[in-house]
Amino acid sequence: MMHTVNKSPFERNVLDSCLRLAKKGSVILLYEDAVYAAAAGTTATDTVKAASNEYSFYVLGPDLAARGITEDQVVDGVNVVDYGGFVDLVVEHGPVQSWL
């Protein structure tokens, strides 16, 4: 199973819900405003860092760049993918649960 999250962790509790309910070992992709969760040095960093040991964590590169976050600012354990990589993940790990 693959899970996608697109809301900022500072504005909604979507990421928390996803992490509570997504089965360990599944794939989680952060995109749109959820990419803020992947930036190091925030109050969400510890949550994401801990979760990255239990899930395969990905973040969408173009959404990071749009928001001024460089790839070297991304929390260790979270992998950056482009749109092609997003599609590959869906093909390989679908079905997809979209946490909106």
Partner: peptide, 23 residues
């Protein structure tokens, strides 16, 4: 305030998401 501070973040590049960078 809150996520509004992200509006002012330096280095925004929106070419990859096809939206206008209004920073």
């Amino acid at each position: 305030v809150d996520d509004g501070v992200y509006q002012l973040k330096k280095g925004q590049d929106t070419t990859g998401i096809n939206m206008k960078n209004f920073s």
